[in-house]
């Protein structure tokens, strides 16, 4: 089977995010970018499926500007077989990404799409679910274990109350959670091989998708600075503050 894995280029998790002075967004100039960590987990899972012989081909997809090819090369160096780059300088919202993934999935016919549960830049946590809905496929979100059967998959999901196991029919969209696996480091031989692996370029129009944003960003601002704590004298004072000032009880 084929496995499709979208990989997003995001600000590296180690970078301290700075808001642009005009409040229009966050600073991305001269900022280190990397693959979204949840997408690395997805790639790792797909590559392991291939190593076990249950997947034949792993295709990485990235959408965005030219530099997304670096992210794709990283996926290829981790073991993906080929890349698809949907090249655009537009701002992409989850719905647009999901529509493009649907178009690619219809063309490539993968049995599974493994999507990171969220991207660490906008933390939307929507793309996987939307893609499944648009395709009419089964979905299993927040996966910590994926076991493949005959045309089915058993997925352990991380939910608030603990773990939930679901059986789903393939084709399916699975979103990966942190504990699904520990992604490997790329290796020198695979980095060298990655150069020769193909990356196909396309654009949103060729996929028939209108990427016009539906959400308007009014203002981006830093979270308010934390205020210092207060020491209370008695339980009465604590309760009164919780009721009257914090208004939490």
């Amino acid at each position: 089977m084929k496995v499709l894995v979208p990989v997003k280029r995001v600000i590296d998790y180690n970078v301290k995010i700075r808001v642009k002075p005009d409040g229009s967004g966050v600073e991305t100039q001269n900022v280190k970018m990397s693959m979204n960590p949840f997408d690395e987990i997805s790639i790792e899972e797909a590559v392991r499926m291939k190593e076990k012989g249950v997947a034949e081909e792993v295709i990485a997809v990235s959408m965005g500007p030219q530099q997304c090819q670096e992210t794709l090369r990283t996926a290829l160096a981790m073991g993906a077989d080929r890349g698809i780059h949907v090249k655009t300088d537009d701002v992409l919202e989850p719905l647009a990404v999901a529509k493009m993934l649907k178009a690619i999935a219809e063309k490539e016919q993968p049995q599974m799409i493994i999507v990171g549960k969220q991207a660490i830049d906008d933390d939307c946590n929507q793309t996987g679910q939307m893609t499944a809905a648009l395709l009419g496929w089964s979905q299993a979100t927040f996966a910590s274990v994926i076991e493949l059967g005959e045309g089915t998959a058993k997925v352990t999901r991380e939910i608030d109350g603990g773990l939930e196991t679901v059986d789903i029919k393939l084709p399916a969209v699975v979103t990966s959670d942190l504990r699904l696996n520990e992604p490997r480091y790329a290796s020198l031989p695979n980095i060298m091989k990655a150069k020769k692996k193909p990356i196909e370029e396309m654009d949103p129009a060729s996929l028939g998708v209108d990427t016009t944003p539906r959400v308007k960003t009014l203002k981006v601002s830093e979270p308010p600075k934390r205020q210092g704590g207060v020491k209370v004298e008695s339980v009465q004072e604590l309760v009164s503050k919780l009721v009257n000032e914090a208004k939490v009880i």
Binding site: N14, T74, A77, I191, M192, A194, K195
Partner: peptide, 15 residues
């Protein structure tokens, strides 16, 4: 591109 990836890989290993 290869050098960038190698640098990245070692940087992550250290971190």
């Amino acid at each position: 591109d290869e050098q960038k990836m190698i640098v990245d890989m070692v940087r992550r290993f250290v971190r």
